[in-house]
């Protein structure tokens, strides 16, 4: 058992897959000679060679399409799309092709494909480079979506994603690459569709995923000082979505607030809040709260950007306003 950062966890998962299975290769922009925009594949080109670490042209649609084709041809491609904002250029291949070929061919085809991409704001990169669009993909039957919050989950879930026979979107938050956690040396995996209670509590449930788990934990610490014991549930995967664990927690605490970085409109929080009221209505002491990104394109200025993103303070305020504490 050793403490590692999330970048190392993802990197370790990728190396294992390359070592264990000749059919695995990685394709993406600047993953080889440049060593990866976020340095996840640093050293890979030297160790695995250009046939398996493929530096591609800046052609997101063709990158994903080629990976789909390679998967249909019996390989197990892993794609790196530099940021989730660029996934919009590959939307047709992801949504119209990867997600649908198994169904439209009635099981003749399968697309074992992992698309790793970088999500989230907070880096002052402006409106086109700061979005949290993983929720869009989570609305599509045929896709699976993972958004881990720490190295342990990232490695366990990445192993499962690579072994999966369906297309998986794996969204790594740009500000979490240096997040730390204990990771066992021995191999473990985490099934998709299992949320995790990151902090146990009795008074209110905070539901989050990716970086917002850390915001929720921070809020829980503040609430604890004010005499309120918050439970924090990390969704970990957005599709499949584990509403049972969330509802169980809400039944226990009687209160729930969902925190996400995406805009509130049409966000994951709406889906989760709906599931809570369906599954735990009689146990609730009040309405399910939501904290999300402010409904503006991400501004460049640091002060403005911080004001647009959910913070522990906003979570605490929401809890207090809703439940009158």
């Amino acid at each position: 058992m050793a403490e590692i950062i999330l970048r190392e966890a993802v990197s370790r998962g990728l190396r294992e897959a390359l070592d264990e299975d000749e059919r695995v290769f990685i394709i993406g922009e600047d993953i080889g000679a440049f060593k990866g925009a976020y340095a996840v594949t640093s050293g890979f080109l030297d160790d695995y060679g250009p046939e398996r670490i493929i530096d591609s042209p800046i052609s997101e649609s063709a990158i994903v399409g080629a990976a789909i084709g390679a998967a249909l041809g019996g390989l197990r491609p892993i794609v790196e799309i530099m940021t989730i904002n660029f996934m919009l250029l590959a939307m047709d291949q992801v949504v119209n092709h990867a997600a649908k070929l198994r169904y439209m061919s009635n099981g003749q085809m399968k697309v074992p494909l992992v698309i790793r991409t970088v999500t989230g704001g907070g880096g002052q990169l402006g409106a086109t480079h700061s979005q949290s669009l993983e929720v869009w993909f989570a609305t599509v039957p045929g896709l699976k979506v993972i958004a881990p919050s720490d190295p342990y989950d990232a490695l366990g879930l990445l192993r499962t994603a690579i072994a999966d026979d369906d297309p998986v979107i794996f969204a790594e938050h740009a500000l979490l690459y240096r997040a730390r956690s204990e990771v066992p040396d021995e191999r473990y995996t985490i099934p998709l569709g299992q949320a995790k209670v990151k902090r146990e509590g009795t008074d209110v449930t905070l539901v989050a995923y990716s970086r917002m788990v850390h915001v929720a934990l921070e809020a829980a610490a503040i609430l604890a000082e004010r005499g309120m014991d918050a439970e924090v549930v990390d969704l970990r995967t957005l599709r499949p979505l584990d509403t049972d664990t969330v509802a169980q927690s809400a039944r226990k605490t009687g209160r729930a607030v969902v925190v996400e970085e995406f805009w509130r409109t049409g966000g994951m929080g709406a889906e989760v809040a709906s599931a809570i009221q369906e599954k735990a209505f009689d146990y609730l002491d009040g309405p399910v709260g939501r904290v999300g990104g402010v409904e503006v394109p991400a501004p460049y200025n640091g002060t403005l950007e911080a004001a647009a993103l959910p913070t522990a303070g906003r979570v605490v305020e929401t809890v207090e306003n809703l439940y009158g504490i």
Partner: peptide, 20 residues
């Protein structure tokens, strides 16, 4: 059925053949 959508997939099938 999406105009042009099959072209990148063709490239990928070819990539798999060459890879193997």
């Amino acid at each position: 059925a999406i105009v042009g959508g099959q072209l990148p997939i063709a490239v990928g099938l070819a990539l798999s053949a060459k890879y193997k």
